[in-house]
């Protein structure tokens, strides 16, 4: 069953086409990757799906709700961990979690404790967010996104700027989450997409170049590895 259906979506910024007739669907429970170089349109698409930016044309349905008419209902079932670790800096880790839980009327101590355990936040629970390391801030940012128990979770560049250990640790957490919710993950790290995603959509200059599993994309392009496929697709589009 498709939980997100995107049909012919365009987004124009003055003279630039950020999204050019993008159509795709995402299945419930899927870990779906949006891959592309900087400026490909990944973040724009996520912003449109979350109701943060309006599309120029096309239709989008999320859990059967229309993004134009029923955005309030959509906001009840989605959450986002943006590219920037957007947390309340002067609040402690615990206060941040409680604050976001209260927004969704979900301030259940068990849920918070569960999330604290999953993300190994116990040792920094009473520490102010601004004093956390980059890795902990990212973890907190994703933990916050899960506190609402969303049906759909958007992870925009979740491991951006993290060292290899922190990145691997986050991958393991994301893999654990995958079982229960639909995750849409954007990244420009190929190995991240390859390791985590069930299916992937490759975007370049606002256009959807290919969609499928990693294996399907490799086969279609007659390449041995995913990186070669990606480069081949993007270069062909740029020519």
């Amino acid at each position: 069953m498709n939980i997100i259906t995107i049909d012919n979506v365009c987004k124009n910024y003055k003279s630039k086409k950020a999204l050019d007739n993008v159509s795709l669907s995402i299945k419930q429970g899927e870990l779906f990757g949006l891959l592309g170089v900087n400026g490909a349109g990944k973040t724009t698409l996520i912003k449109i799906l979350c109701g943060l930016t309006r599309k120029t044309s096309g239709t989008i349905r999320i859990n059967n709700f229309d993004v134009d008419k029923e955005i309030d209902k959509i906001k009840e079932i989605i959450d986002i961990s943006p590219q920037e670790t957007s947390v309340a800096n002067n609040l402690t880790v615990k206060e941040n979690l409680e604050f976001f839980a209260n927004i969704y009327n979900n301030n259940d101590a068990n849920t918070i404790n569960e999330i604290v355990d999953v993300f190994n936040l116990n040792e920094v629970l009473n520490q102010r967010a601004k004093t956390l390391s980059g890795g902990y801030k990212r973890r907190l940012s994703i933990a916050i996104a899960l506190i609402s128990k969303p049906k759909i979770l958007f992870l925009d560049e979740p491991t951006l700027g993290l060292d290899v250990f922190a990145r691997r640790e986050l991958w393991n957490i994301i893999k654990k989450l995958q079982k229960n919710i639909t995750i849409i993950l954007t990244s420009h790290y190929l190995e991240e997409i390859e390791n985590l995603c069930d299916r992937v959509a490759i975007l370049s200059n606002g256009k959807l170049l290919k969609i499928g599993t990693i294996e399907e994309i490799k086969q279609l392009n007659n390449t041995q590895n995913f990186e070669d496929s990606f480069i081949k697709l993007v270069e062909a589009n740029n020519e």
Binding site: K75, E76, P82, S86, V87, N89, I144, S148
Partner: peptide, 13 residues
């Protein structure tokens, strides 16, 4: 600036 508001804009607030 820290995108804290953007995050909240996607919530039911």
């Amino acid at each position: 600036q820290t995108f804290f508001l953007k995050r909240l804009y996607s919530s039911p607030m």
